[in-house]
Design a protein around this nucleic acid. Structure first.
Lengths: 205, 205
DNA sequence: AAAAATCAAACAAACGTTTGATTAATTCAA
DNA sequence: TTGAATTAATCAAACGTTTGTTTGATTTTT
């Protein structure tokens, strides 16, 4: 069961890990940020590693998003599904930037193998869903014959690139450091528009 | 000056950091891998942090690639320049996967601020170069009016996505874990082909 | 003979974790 | 509703490791 206290610690941990990385964050630092005693982390979660696992499980549904309902919706055309996935994916990541960073830190290291595989699995499932939609569109000849796996890499990769570094993002956009592109609605629309345009011009005849 | 010994330690460090991350790697582990005494790292580099800085400087020219000569070449059209940058960038990253991972680990954590800024600067310079080419193409009306910054994010982001996790990459390509996509020439060509196609269909009229 | 490189050993600091005492909250018979 | 009994939560302190780093002696190179 997830109590208020556990949730409180997990949320503090997400922010801390996103900033300093898992290995770079100490339990003492976490405890001080969350304003709890150092022993509380091990009391509630057992260990630092298990805290990480708890966070991933806690946010697991977030990772999948609305992929299932979009895929299952029979009133939508393939390109409409793609557009919805773009909107959903952008919104999901931009509104959970810290957790997103943690996931990619883990992918980039992959020390804890079991955890690594867990995360990869969810990603692969998302990618497979999109691949199915693309392949269906290709079959119906509304899409050009494309490389579905790398198309998915383009979609996700573009968003990730933007999420990599707020500093880089702001430099590119000619904004000063105080600007937060992730919460800015104009920037979100700009990202969605770009993704739709590039994916449309690539997929559609 | 970079001696053989320093180079030897740096190369071992690049592999180790890429696997376990900077914080996750201990100097003792590094020393044992490089088959040198623990004291040698501090003897040659001063500290663990300075070793990291030395690595970035050591590989700095790699980060820039052939961007300058491609941009300066006046016999090339804009789209030819883009194609060359794609080929150069893919080759560069696929043949230095470990260093590439380290750079992105640093971007994703960004504890050491000065180092973080250093890396961002080189990235921004690369991105600016590509942006100039795109904007010139737009001006000449050989390119459609596109979002140059996010186009760059798409190009880099697609490659990065593939580089994130060998495990994920192999799952997507229906390969077993023993396959190394980064050294496979067929895969490299596939990636280049996809990038050219998607960028062409987006940029060209 | 001087300088550079290597080594085992030790350093203090920081780490994740555990302990045992103490306080707060909950339970339940009277 | 009360009050003792039980459980849960919190705490400062300490545990044993591991960390990056330094030392001072020893070997190798110049």
């Amino acid at each position: 069961m997830i109590t208020d206290k556990k949730e409180h610690i997990m949320n503090a941990a997400i922010e801390l890990f996103a900033e300093k990385g898992f290995e770079g964050s100490s339990i003492r630092d976490l405890a001080s940020r969350a304003d709890v005693n150092v022993a509380m982390v091990n009391y509630y979660f057992g260990s630092k590693d298990k805290l990480f696992e708890a966070i991933v499980e806690y946010k697991a549904s977030f990772m999948r998003g609305k992929m299932d309902e979009i895929e299952a919706n029979k009133t939508l055309t393939e390109i409409e599904k793609i557009d919805l996935i773009i909107e959903n994916y952008v919104a999901k990541i931009l509104s959970n930037p810290s957790f997103h960073r943690i996931l990619y830190q883990e992918l980039l290291m992959g020390e804890r193998e079991a955890m690594h595989e867990n995360i990869v699995k969810v990603f692969v499932r998302n990618i497979t869903t999109l691949r199915n939609i693309i392949e269906q569109g290709v079959k119906k000849k509304v899409f050009k014959k494309v490389d579905p796996e790398l198309t998915m890499a383009t979609l996700i990769g573009t968003i990730n690139q933007v999420m990599l570094s707020k500093a880089m993002c702001n430099m590119l956009m000619d904004r000063d450091g105080s600007f937060d592109p992730y919460t800015d609605l104009v920037f979100r629309q700009r990202l969605i528009k770009h993704l739709k345009q590039i994916i449309h011009s690539y997929l559609l005849n």
